[in-house]
Each structure stands twice: as C-alpha cells, then as structure tokens.
Design a protein around this nucleic acid. Structure first.
Lengths: 115, 115
DNA sequence: CGAATACTTCGCCATGTAGTGAAGTATCTG
DNA sequence: CAGATACTTCACTACATGGCGAAGTATTCG
C-alpha cells in the first residue's frame, strides 16, 4: 500500500464521528468490542464494520483471548495524516491581508506569463 | 454546523487523492477551475463535484470574474482537523507508553522475520 | 449437557461519492 | 452576430458506507 492509499484510508476512517469516538476511547485504555459498543446507540454489526474500517486503515489492532477481543490503538497512520496537514500551517498562521496580497501578486504574475 | 460535522466534512474532503492534489496545487497559488482540472485525467463535471465538496468543507472559496472562476485556499478547517489529531501525538512520540512499547515489540518481531 | 455471552457473518436497504456524456449559460473574440 | 471559451447542471451508472434484523460460531458458566 502506497502513501496515497494509506492517506485515503486514514482520512476516510476519521470521517465518521462514531469511529473518532472509538479512537478517543482507546486513547484512554484498551477495550473489548462490547465495551466499545456500549456508549453507542447502534447495534453490534455496525460497530463491527467500523472496527473493520479502522483495522484496514491500520489505526487499531485486535487480539482474541477466549471469547473476548481486545482492541488496541495503533496511531502511526494518524501521524502521516498530520504530517500531510502540517504543510498548510503557514496559511492558517499568516494574516489574511498578507495572504490576499500574496494571492493577488501571484495572479498578476500568472496573467502576465499567460500572454 | 457543529465541531463534529465540520470534522466529518473536512476529513471526508481529504480522503480523495484528486482533492488532496487540488489543495496542494492551491497551496502554491490560486487557480482557475480549468487550471485545476488540467493535470487530472478526469472530466470537468467530476472536478466540479470535487470543488463542491471542498467548498462545503470550507477548504476553498470561489470568486467569479468574467467567465473565469478563481479558486483560493481557505485552510482553517484543516487546522481543526490537525488539532484533533494532535491528541494522539504522545502515542507516537512517547517510548515509555505501553502501547508504543507493544507496537515496537511487534515491529522488531516483524523485522526479525523479514530478514 | 444446555444456556448465556461475545463476537461474527449474512442478506438487505438507503444514501453518498465518483465518474460519464450531453446539454445549458454566460462571457469574450473575431 | 457567430463561434469559442469557461464553467455549470442534468441524468445516469457503479460502487462504498452505514445501518438493520437474523442467524451462526466459539467459549464459558451452571
């Protein structure tokens, strides 16, 4: 799986509020499938699908002991996602005036080189 | 729109590689719709949908001058997304954490079996 | 053994996303 | 005015996601 695909799956996994809640819960401590399901109003099969998506994205690992499955956080892919976002830091730290000035300069430049 | 919805839309917008490429392009300079479309193998209507999704997520703004539309980056929602991810930094940075220790053990194990 | 527990899988439906070709609306340009 | 340019919208197909109830598989308890 390449970088683009990993980012696809990671961001996709993070789009759902139930999945973000599951990750936030796992940040505190490992949990079983039924413990993860308890706070949510949805049925187990839906939770299973969410766990499948989180697993595919590499954000959790699962291990079975007896009949209970322990889910653990494995947040490395989130780091990659965050590093992708970090590129835009300068935009949200720069004042709007400077940003607009920069944009307008670029636009003028672009028009000139077009002709 | 509340925080959860904004995160939903932001992460959803970032799942698609075409949209991430568009954002990366806009990071360098503002662009028209057709300029944004040029490097991609898909047709204009598909680009329009991507722009609609980026717009709904608040990641771009569009302004029409004559018949050309200038697209600008508006990355504030990305900051919120990044701040959500920052919570997990300790997991990928703290070597004393038991989960990280577990992950590293797994990795060492994997490397050993790779050789 | 039989029942309860903890998941897991199955089949189904509704909705959203990603793409297409075709047609429509403005706005320049010759 | 006619045609090219720059989008925009429409109608449609295909597939993934998110949910359900029902049924299945192990494991543990009484």
């Amino acid at each position: 799986m390449n970088q683009a695909e990993r980012l696809d799956r990671t961001f996709a996994a993070l789009t759902d509020p139930t999945r973000r809640a599951i990750l936030a819960r796992l940040e505190r401590a490992d949990a079983s499938v039924s413990e993860l399901a308890k706070p949510h109003a949805i049925k187990l099969p839906a939770i299973m699908k969410h766990l499948g998506i989180l697993d595919d994205a590499g954000l959790i690992t699962r291990s079975k002991t007896g009949r209970t499955v322990t889910v653990r956080l494995s947040p490395k892919p989130m780091r990659e996602a965050m590093e992708w976002l970090r590129r835009y830091e300068r935009f949200w730290n720069t004042s709007l005036d400077r940003l607009t000035a920069y944009a307008e300069a670029k636009e003028t430049q672009a028009r000139r080189s077009d002709k």
